[in-house]
């Protein structure tokens, strides 16, 4: 019987071994998909905008749509001065979206290996979330100086419980990258496991004879429906990540009004 282990898809395999100073820096299937996502994005966008015309063609209008989509998202959540973060938010959004979409392909160019979603590993999403937080704190202090720390001091709180509230606010702030990373990771992990569990039912039922093969139609329909849903989730989670990034970054621009 074929392998029906639903979490085998999350295994990391080194493609090219590399060790620097005792650190394992191997080029893995995860790195492969990250490089592929970046290369595909850059290539497609360069292709779409290489022959830019006043009246956009098909590829160019998709690229423009993408730009307008992200720009509109930033304007509506962080205001017009949030647009200075456009390159950052656009990069994050495209990277996550591409990663999620490539993860939907059950394909890998090296024989014996499997498709992979790099956003289904918490260390990847957490690193992305930490990058957001680094930009937030760095830019906030650079722009507002010490006034940035006002985001930890809500107004109108009695002085007696203020220290208490500040500690809670700080912990709440530290929890942001955790939440941001966990939400993307959990959605991708849960969705992909669910897909593979139902796909495993097809193989298990199919191997028990004619009646089983007929019964396998039910999980097959389920897998088709779930795959469509998973595409939606892949887009939605990239969008949610980008929107939350904008909301957090607007704190760096306007500390004080929560």
């Amino acid at each position: 019987m074929a392998d029906t282990n639903p979490i085998k898809q999350f295994e990391i395999h080194p493609i090219a071994e590399l060790s620097v100073g005792g650190l394992n820096l191997s080029f893995t299937n995860s790195s492969y998909f990250m490089v592929a996502a970046v290369a595909l994005t850059v290539g497609l966008l360069a292709l779409a905008t290489s022959r830019a015309t006043l009246v956009p063609g098909r590829a160019q209008s998709v690229a423009e749509l993408l730009y307008e989509f992200v720009a509109g998202m930033i304007r509506s959540t962080a205001g017009n001065d949030g647009l200075r973060f456009f390159p950052f938010v656009f990069t994050l959004f495209i990277f996550i979206l591409m990663g999620n979409m490539l993860g939907m392909l059950p394909y890998f160019p090296v024989p014996g290996l499997h498709g992979f979603t790099f956003t289904s590993h918490i260390i990847v999403t957490f690193a992305l979330a930490l990058a957001v937080m680094t930009v937030l704190v760095g830019f906030g202090i650079f722009k507002n100086g010490l006034k940035f720390f006002k985001i930890f001091v809500p107004s109108g709180v009695p002085i007696a419980i203020l220290p208490f509230v500040i500690v809670i606010e700080i912990i709440s702030f530290i929890s942001r990258p955790v939440t941001l990373g966990v939400r993307l990771f959990a959605n991708m992990l849960a969705g992909h496991i669910l897909l593979k569990v139902f796909a495993g039912f097809i193989i298990m039922l199919g191997s028990v004879g004619a009646l089983g093969a007929v019964g396998a139609i039910a999980p097959l329909i389920m897998v088709v429906a779930l795959t469509a849903l998973e595409f939606l989730v892949a887009f939605l989670q990239a969008y949610v990540f980008a929107v939350l990034t904008c909301i957090y970054l607007s704190d760096a621009l306007h500390p004080g009004h929560h």
Binding site: I174, S175, V182
Partner: peptide, 17 residues
């Protein structure tokens, strides 16, 4: 999932601190 991760994040951050 949204509310769950919000709460989970808070507790994890508290434990970390």
């Amino acid at each position: 999932l949204r509310y769950g991760s919000e709460f989970f994040g808070g507790v994890i951050a508290g434990v970390f601190v």
